[in-house]
């Protein structure tokens, strides 16, 4: 099953490589990983998407918790949560597809953030499935795609903090 694990990590040099290294060393699967500092500059937050059997996921969480730089973690998929991913996608647009691409971006609540005579760059935010659907719906040739990887947060009062 697919799991989204959120981690509060000491914002120290090398901390990220401990997390990444754990996944390679133990042969765990990693779908995406995002990391950035939080409002507290001493802490980074990682959102990590992985998949595996229940036993494997349990080991992943235990092994992550064992890393000295990991302050806390939560498996978002165990409860109600929101996940978002941001994508920037550049497409070749000539003549009449320009209108078509713009309409499609509108439908998906995307924004065109850069324009040239022959290209559009669209920004789109949503869960992974929505981004996939957009890519599928595009008929214009794609020049480049960049996705941020998943970021996630718990719903309601619950929060991951120290």
């Amino acid at each position: 099953m697919r799991h989204i694990i959120s981690i509060l990590l000491e914002n120290e040099s090398g901390a990220l490589s401990r997390v990444a290294g754990l996944f390679t060393a133990r042969g765990y699967n990693i779908e995406s990983l995002t990391v950035a500092p939080t409002e507290d500059a001493t802490l980074s937050r990682i959102t990590l998407v992985t998949s595996g059997s229940e036993e494997v996921i349990e080991q992943i969480k235990k092994q992550l918790n064992k890393l000295v730089d990991v302050v806390k973690l939560v498996d978002l998929t165990e409860g109600e949560h929101i996940e978002r991913e941001m994508m920037m996608i550049k497409v070749r647009t000539n003549g009449k597809d320009r209108e078509e691409v713009r309409r499609l971006a509108d439908i998906f609540r995307g924004r065109i953030i850069d324009v040239t005579d022959s290209t559009y760059t669209i920004e789109l935010t949503g869960n992974g499935a929505k981004l996939d659907a957009f890519i599928k719906a595009l008929t214009a040739p794609i020049l480049e795609t960049v996705r941020s990887g998943v970021a996630g947060i718990l719903r309601g009062e619950k929060a991951l903090h120290t």
């Binding site: 036993e55 349990e58 080991q59 235990k62 092994q63 918790n65 064992k66």
Partner: peptide, 11 residues
């Protein structure tokens, strides 16, 4: 003492 030792190889 190490949670990751528990149910690692044998449940």
């Amino acid at each position: 003492i190490d949670p990751s030792s528990i149910s690692k190889n044998i449940r």
